[in-house]
Amino acid sequence: MPSTKDLRDRIRSVSNTAKVTGAMQLIAASKMNRAQIAVQKSRSYSDQITSVLSVISDEVKGLDLLEILPLLKTRTVKKTLMLLITPDRGLAGPLVSNLNKEAGEFITKSKAPVSVVTIGKKGERFIARTSQDLLASYSVPDRPKLEDILSVSKFLISQYENENFDKVVIIYSRFLNTAVQVPETKIILPVSSLEKNEIYSGEFIYEPDPVSVLKQLIPRYVETLIFQSVLEAIASEHSSRMVAMQNATDNANELIDELTLDLNKARQESITSELLDIVGGVTALESKK
């Protein structure tokens, strides 16, 4: 049975932990709101650019474009490039380990050798620790703008165009809602054939011409895909951290309750045994008389 002093010390330390996790929860909650709004806002752009792209690619389907637009061309996959988007910091529940697991499985399953580009320190360390081929690592600010990911997309596109790699995928955590984030693998290059959008079918006039528009549109589309994934990853990170910290705070409070109960018991016991001692002493004295 621990002494009352030990119990008091433990209660103090646990309640300090609860204070820290409570503060982290509040911070994560406010960051989460901001990140969720950013995801919603950029979704409309990415939906629309996808629909424009599908209209044009439908238009130019007959033409022999693949030579002009290498980003559309599917090649036999000899080497794969993976962009792994993870948080910089931990304490976000199972998020990081789920992402790393997804990445590890992708690498083991892939027939072609995989090289990795990372955004975020957690993924970078994982790739370095498992001694995979780490090609480059980037970091983005907490509230990224499109410019912040341009260097990443330029790098990926040039690697693909120079035929250093024949396939580029993103692994990121898709934000579904505050409670659910799933790791997801998405192929970004070659730009795959898009589903035809029925609402937009019909003859369009192109200025200057479909191919030039497409040429400008495709890099934008790739940028948007990456940007959207980064935003989703950030929203997932903060949501996951908020939930994790909420659980930690709840657990700490529960522990405090249990320890307080133990403390009260221990205190009561020591009082009882002291009382018994006194009573015993008095009886002994009285019987002597």
């Binding site: 424009v52 019909g202 369009f204 006039i205 192109y206 200025e207 200057p208 479909p210 030039s212 528009v213």
Partner: peptide
């Protein structure tokens, strides 16, 4: 400002995609 010069779009404009 379209790529080939300025264009003005009014209601009932023909379908167009431009940079």
């Amino acid at each position: 400002p379209a790529s080939e010069g300025e264009i003005t779009v009014l209601p009932s404009h023909v379908k167009i995609i431009s940079s």
